[in-house]
């Protein structure tokens, strides 16, 4: 049986809102370690990988592995019924047909209970090996969101160039071009404002901005985004959770 209680419903709300436009049907695999999701978008370009570690929950038990096949659009509708500050408990039997969501208002005795019918979802699992990336950058997630939104007004593609002392984001379009250059900086008072670059090799990679527009929906999950890039392989965009992560692997574009 699964019983996982979030101190605040807002975390799961944010997670679901962050991925529901990238993938619709996905299996939430629950184990003693927490809840994981892996799913690829319909165009097979973007892979979503989520781990909500058991330490995120104020109470968590899952005796054996349970898979919850969820339609995220329906899940999002139910999850919006609860208040952000409510306790949220997910409950499912060992071979469940449905998952129950219990919202408890902390300021009153109100308890709201919803159940979502589950689906059989046949999704393959891709093996992603840990690898050394050519470059790892860490920067404020909100800045990355703004840069990508600004440059998406010009182009469908975002070029990212990384050297040891700068990160350059570029977009070239029919109506004009744009670029934003960032330099590494350490902010001691506000570490979440820092920008760091670890470089093994200089990077020059191009990505579809429509996918990045979905990725930056994770911005509210973390003050910082970690971007790991190697030339000619998928880049990893990561929002860290208190325990776990939301990762997006995005396949690059190449000059043909």
């Amino acid at each position: 049986m699964l019983e996982g209680k979030f101190e605040e419903a807002s975390l799961l709300k944010k997670v679901v809102e962050s991925i529901k436009d990238s993938v619709q049907l996905c299996n939430f695999v629950c184990s003693e370690h927490g809840i994981t999701v892996q799913a690829v978008d319909d165009s097979r370009v973007l892979l979503v990988s989520l781990l909500i570690g058991n330490e995120v929950f104020s109470d968590y038990r899952c005796d054996r592995n349970i898979t919850l096949g969820v339609d995220l659009k329906s899940f999002a509708k139910i999850i919006r019924c609860g208040g952000n500050d409510d306790y949220l408990t997910l409950i499912a039997e060992d071979s469940p047909d449905s998952v129950t969501l219990v919202f408890e208002d902390k300021n009153s005795d109100r308890i709201s209970e919803y159940s979502l019918k589950l689906m059989e979802i046949d999704n393959e699992f891709l093996k992603i090996d840990d690898m050394d990336y050519d470059s790892v950058i860490k920067m404020p997630s909100i800045d990355f969101q703004k840069i990508c939104r600004d440059l998406s007004t010009l182009s469908e593609s975002l070029q990212i160039l990384i050297t040891k002392d700068s990160i350059k984001f570029m977009a070239e379009g029919e109506t004009g071009n744009g670029s934003v250059i960032l330099k590494p900086r350490t902010d001691i008072d506000k570490p979440e404002q820092s920008i760091t670059v670890k470089l093994n090799n200089a990077v020059n990679s191009t990505f579809g901005l429509k996918y990045i527009a979905d990725i930056v929906k994770g911005t509210s999950l973390s003050n910082q985004i970690v971007i790991k890039i190697s030339n000619r392989t998928p880049a990893l965009f990561e929002y860290k959770l208190q325990s776990g992560y939301l990762r997006f692997y995005l396949a690059p574009k190449f000059e043909d």
Binding site: R44, K127, G208, Y249, K253, E255, D256
Partner: peptide, 14 residues
């Protein structure tokens, strides 16, 4: 032109 690659070209399923 510029070509969009897919995730499966890099990772294998099991």
């Amino acid at each position: 032109g510029i070509k969009q690659t897919q995730i499966e070209e890099y990772y294998y399923s099991f």
